[in-house]
Simulated assay, not measured.
Amino acid sequence: MLYREYKERHPEGYSRSRFFDYLMRHQVANSVVMHLEHKPEINCLSIMQAKSCPS
Rank of each mutant, 00 (worst) to 15 (best):
S46G: 02
R18C: 05
Q27R: 07
A50N: 06
Q49D: 07
K51Y: 01
E5Y: 07
A29M: 15
Y3K: 00
R18Q: 13
Q27F: 09
H35S: 13
V32E: 04
H10V: 11
D21F: 14
L36R: 14
Y14C: 05
S46A: 04
L23I: 08
R18F: 13
S15M: 09
K7L: 08
S17G: 12
L45Q: 06
P40C: 02
H10N: 15
G13Q: 07
R16M: 07
R16W: 08
Y22S: 03
E41P: 03
K7V: 11
F20A: 04
A50W: 04
S15T: 15
D21S: 15
F20M: 07
E5K: 08
Q27H: 10
S15A: 12
E41W: 07
A29C: 14
S15P: 01
E5T: 12
P11Y: 04
H35W: 12
E12R: 09
M1V: 10
Q49S: 08
S31V: 13
Y22E: 13
H26A: 08
Y3S: 00
Y22V: 02
S17F: 11
V28L: 14
M34T: 12
I42G: 02
S17A: 14
Q49A: 07
L45M: 05
N43G: 01
S55Y: 04
Y6M: 04
Y3P: 00
H10E: 14
H35E: 11
H38P: 01
P11A: 04
H26F: 15
E41C: 05
Y6Q: 01
F19V: 04
G13I: 11
S52Y: 02
L45H: 05
P11I: 05
H38L: 14
I42V: 13
S52K: 08
H35F: 12
I42N: 06
L36C: 09
F19K: 01
L45E: 03
S15F: 05
H38E: 11
I42Y: 05
V33W: 10
E37H: 08
E8R: 15
A50L: 07
Y22T: 01
Y22R: 09
E8H: 10
M34P: 01
P54N: 06
S46I: 04
S52F: 00
E41A: 06
A50T: 04
M34G: 10
R18E: 14
H26T: 09
Y3R: 00
S55I: 06
E37S: 10
L23E: 04
Y14P: 01
M1N: 15
H35L: 13
M1K: 14
H38F: 15
A29G: 15
R9L: 15
E5H: 09
R4V: 09
R18L: 12
